[in-house]
Design a binder for these strands. Structure first.
Lengths: 149, 149
DNA sequence: CGCGATTTGGTTGTGCACAACTCAATAGTG
DNA sequence: CACTATTGAGTTGTGCACAACCAAATCGCG
């Protein structure tokens, strides 16, 4: 092996890439029942926390730029879960509001995290430890690769 | 909060999603110098380890199905890094071989992992611990969500 | 007030991921 | 040997991610 450091198995980054895809795949059947994709589910989580953010705030929360978010919100609107509203004072701003159907979906989504938790880790302490480790890593990454958006 | 378990900050999965994207973003400028995207880089890593696999073996290694891999390999071929070869014995099989340019690229890619390692973790032990943890998690996930491919 | 700079959301184009499907080649079975 | 099932790669369609760019609205300075 000319360059052992290039071995795929040793690449931490590939692990993240793969786990991220596996997790999305694990969510897929659960979210399909709700008519959502995984990124759409993340957006709904933000709205269930606090309704009516601007597209920009939503993007900050999800770390997504308008190029990704605009069509995603459009699809949520087409699904009847969300309503777009032009700002009155500042007409550049667009706020995103839950419809009744969007609000109602929260009840049906409530069980989703638990259904996945079992797959992830065996016990709560290791879950929390892994979570803390990843949060620290995400912050370090965030600092080194500033997201424009 | 009606359903505290739905809070975005508590979602381990969102962390993976985000870190995976941040990592890809961290690679992007380095790989742009080589004319590669991150998934293309992963494919090249496999080829540098062992040249001439079938499309299926490449997919097993990267956990990608033919729907993703076929166009990716086509782009690598268009970039002159790779050559496709129909199997002689079994004409269904297509093997992927490095060209001279593809082999030469390994030298230029040799420095990439180190350039990123500093961003990821501060010291080798924590790198290895995180790697072991993620490998275990990936295996648990792999077992629970069998990849068709 | 007038006008250039910034902000906000959107569009376009490229590439990845995946489901569903097609089609040819091969393997297996009666 | 004929015929069906399976395998292997590829195609199509949808959606996400991101870079580059755009237009309109607002801001701010002279």
């Amino acid at each position: 092996m000319a360059h052992p450091q290039l071995q795929l198995d040793h690449q931490l980054c590939f692990l993240f890439h793969r786990i991220s895809r596996d997790l999305t795949a694990a969510y897929r059947p659960l979210l399909a029942d709700l008519g959502l994709t995984y990124p759409q589910y993340l957006a709904m989580l933000v709205l269930w926390e606090r309704d009516g953010p601007g597209v920009g705030e939503l993007g900050d929360r999800l770390c997504l730029d308008s190029g990704t978010l605009s069509p995603l919100v459009r699809r949520l609107e087409a699904a009847g879960l969300v309503r777009r509203q032009r700002g009155a004072a500042d007409e550049r701003r667009v706020t995103v509001h839950l419809t009744e159907a969007g609000r109602a979906l929260e009840e049906r989504a409530a069980g989703v995290p638990q259904q996945l938790a079992a797959t992830l880790v065996d016990d709560l302490p290791s879950y929390q430890a892994l979570h803390a480790e990843l949060t620290a890593l995400a912050q370090r990454l965030e600092a080194s690769t500033p997201r424009s958006a």
